[in-house]
């Protein structure tokens, strides 16, 4: 396959940035999208040009490090991570536009690399059960209905890639935040801090500058792990019931 790539190039956070066009040839259908970019970078390096910087690590679709807004969609045309996207999803002669995630809380650091530490700060605000190591009850002490454990697992599968934010017209982080709120609200272990968690995580999400939710469902449609927006509804319930009933003023 021969392709034309329009890639966002930006030297650093302060730089304005612009698209640059690259031609690339002899791409095999069996390559992953990132392997295609590896080939481009190897070509650029050989010519002494700065390779295109993009985030990636596990290349198995689980670490959540890869991003890229490919041809108008986060992680490209398939509902998967960019590292699991293969070139057989494209055709010879295609022009592919590659942009970084766009959101105020995700500043571009270089080319296609963005800073997603806002997600870490949302988790730090309350995405945990406050138990120290040791001194916990036996793992089978509290039975958990299988259906509840499965629902919690569905929410817990979030890989924190940020595709939900990238897909949302409002750059909202509701799906990400609600996945963690849901997981812990469903499990008995999360009950003790249930109210304070919802309040604090939502407050942090807002403080980071993410947009509000318009319930378009774009996040769910693009989430590579298929996290459902029922989690957003659950977080809304959690939040509303927390603000009217918690002891915090």
């Amino acid at each position: 396959m021969n392709l034309t790539l329009k890639i966002w190039r930006q030297k650093n956070n302060a730089d304005k940035g612009d698209f640059k066009e690259y031609k690339i040839s002899d791409i095999s259908k069996d390559m992953s999208f990132l392997e295609m970019l590896d080939v481009l970078n190897e070509n650029l390096s050989e010519k002494g040009e700065d390779p295109v910087h993009f985030d990636h690590d596990c290349r198995e679709g689980i670490c959540g490090m890869c991003s890229l807004y490919i041809d108008g969609k986060p992680h490209g045309p398939q509902q998967t991570t960019t590292c699991q996207l293969h070139m057989r999803s494209f055709s010879d002669g295609d022009v592919i536009t590659i942009e970084p995630w766009r959101a105020k809380p995700f500043p571009v650091m270089k080319d296609l690399v963005v800073d997603r530490s806002a997600f870490d700060r949302i988790i730090q605000a309350g995405g945990y059960v406050s138990v120290n190591t040791g001194g916990v009850p036996d793992a089978n002490e509290i039975p958990i209905p299988k259906s509840i454990a499965d629902l919690a697992m569905d929410a817990a599968q979030c890989i924190g890639c940020g595709a939900c934010v990238a897909a949302c017209k409002n750059a909202s982080a509701m799906l990400f935040t609600s996945a963690k709120v849901s997981q812990l609200a469903l499990l008995p272990q999360g009950q003790v801090e249930r109210k304070i968690r919802a309040e604090k995580m939502v407050a942090q999400m807002d403080a980071e500058g993410f947009g509000a939710c318009t319930n378009t469902g774009a996040c769910e449609a693009e989430c590579p792990k298929g996290i459902s927006i029922t989690n957003i509804a659950r977080m809304n319930r959690e939040y509303f019931s927390a603000v009217v009933s918690s002891d915090t003023l």
């Binding site: 329009k6 698209f19 807004y69 041809d71 108008g72 969609k73 536009t97 942009e99 766009r102 959101a103 105020k104 809380p105 897909a167 017209k169 409002n170 750059a171 909202s172 500058g209 993410f210 947009g211 509000a212 318009t214 378009t216 469902g217 774009a218 449609a221 693009e222």
Partner: peptide, 21 residues
């Protein structure tokens, strides 16, 4: 207004119609 501010730089290409109505 808030939502607009959350994405100061718009995408050059967007296929939002494939994920939402």
């Amino acid at each position: 207004r808030r939502n607009k501010q959350s994405r100061p730089v718009a995408y050059a290409v967007s296929k939002a119609s494939t994920n939402s109505v």
